[in-house]
Amino acid sequence: MNPASGPQTVLIEVIDVPSPRIVYLNGAFLPFEEARVPIMDRGFLFADGIYEVSAVLDGKLVDNAAHLARLDRSLAEIGIRNPHTLAEWEKLETELVARNGVSEGLVYMQVTRGVAERDFAFPPADTPPTVMMFTQGKTIVANPLAERGAAIVTVEDIRWKRRDIKSVALLAQVLAKQVAAAAGVAEAWMHEDGLVTEGSSSTAFIVTKERVLVTRPLSTALLPGITRAAVLRLAAEEDLRIEERPFSVAEAKDAAEAFYTSASAFVMPVSTIDGHKVGEGRPGPLTLRLRALYLDIARGG
C-alpha cells in the first residue's frame, strides 16, 4: 500500500465478540485482566516509548499504512528498533479488531524501550522492546459534534521541542485536555507567541474569508498528522486554495470556518474558539465538504 495515494483500507473479518476484552502484549493475545507490564518498563519509568492510533470504520482499518509508517519513523527517531514489519503489524491489528468485534473505533499500538533496571542511559541493545495493543469502540461518523460543531479553547503550548515524534510523554496534552474538559468543550488548541501549533490531539485548520484553507506547515513543532495529509490531498484534488503557514489565535477567531483533524475525529468542524463564534457559529460548507469526501474514501469510495 502507498500512503501517498490517499487513505487505504484493510478488510477485517469481524467475529463473535468473546466475553473478555482482548489485548495484545509481547506476542500474546490476552484477556484485559491478565495483561501485566513490569514496573521497570521504561515506558512506565521514563515515558520512553512511542505510540500510534489507527481508526476502524465499517470493520476496516483506515489509512493504516501511513500510520504504521509514522510509527516506524518515530521509533527510529528515538533509537528503538521496530519489532514488526508493516505486514506483521497489520496482521496483529486485524486479529485484535476481529477478536474484539470492533466495527467502529480505534486500534492503539505502543512500543517502549523495554524492561531494564532504572537508569537514564539506554539499556543493552538486545533488550526486547515492550509491545502492547488494545482496541476501543468509538462513534466516529455519527458524532453529534460533527453536526453542530465543536467548541474549543486555546492554551499555551508547553511541550518539548520534538513534537514531530509521537511520544507517549503526553503530560502537556493531558493538561490541555483537562482545561478543555473543565470548560465543558471538546478540544484545546495550543499556541506559542500567539501562533497556533496544533490541537492537544489533533491538527488545526482554518478557512479564511477569501476561502483559503490554512494549516501550519510540518516541522518539529507539530506532529505530521495522517488525516491532515489526506485532507490536504483531497483539498488539492478539489482545486481549493491551500496555504501551509502559521496562523494566529486572533486570525482563527476571525476565520470564516475552522476545523481539526485526527484519526478519532476525522474532520471535525469548530463552532467557537474561547467562546467566540467562528463564522456563523456552525459547521461551514467547505468543512462539511471535506468531511464528506474523507468519509467516502475512508469507506473505500
Rank of each mutant, 00 (worst) to 15 (best):
P3I: 10
A4T: 09
P7E: 01
P7N: 03
T9M: 06
I12K: 05
S19E: 08
R21Q: 11
R21Y: 09
I22Q: 01
Y24C: 14
L25H: 06
F29Q: 05
L30A: 04
P31W: 00
E33K: 15
E34A: 09
A35Q: 08
D48P: 10
D48Y: 05
G49M: 06
I50Y: 01
Y51V: 13
S54Q: 08
A55V: 11
A55S: 11
G59C: 07
K60W: 11
K60Q: 15
N64P: 07
N64S: 08
H67V: 03
R73Q: 09
R81E: 15
N82S: 12
N82C: 09
A87T: 13
A87V: 12
W89R: 01
W89A: 02
K91M: 08
T94A: 08
L96N: 05
L96P: 11
A98I: 06
R99Y: 04
S103V: 06
Q110S: 03
Q110F: 06
V111M: 01
T112H: 05
G114R: 07
R118D: 14
R118A: 06
D119L: 14
A121M: 12
V131R: 07
M133F: 14
T135E: 00
G137T: 02
K138R: 14
K138S: 09
A142R: 07
N143T: 04
A150H: 08
I152W: 13
T154N: 12
E156F: 00
D164F: 05
I165H: 09
S167W: 02
A169L: 10
L175M: 10
A176S: 09
K177Y: 12
K177E: 00
Q178I: 15
V179C: 10
A182G: 10
G184M: 03
V185C: 02
A186S: 10
A186M: 06
A188E: 02
S200V: 09
S202V: 09
T203P: 07
A204R: 15
F205Y: 00
F205M: 08
I206F: 06
E210W: 06
T220M: 03
A221L: 11
L223M: 14
P224T: 03
A229G: 15
L232E: 05
L232P: 07
R233Q: 14
A236V: 12
L240H: 12
E244I: 08
P246F: 15
S262G: 08
F266H: 06
V267Y: 00
M268E: 05
M268W: 13
M268I: 02
V270A: 07
S271V: 04
S271G: 10
H276Y: 12
H276Q: 11
K277N: 12
G281Q: 06
R282Q: 12
P283T: 04
T287C: 11
L288Y: 01
L293H: 05
Y294V: 03
D296I: 05
I297R: 01
A298W: 07
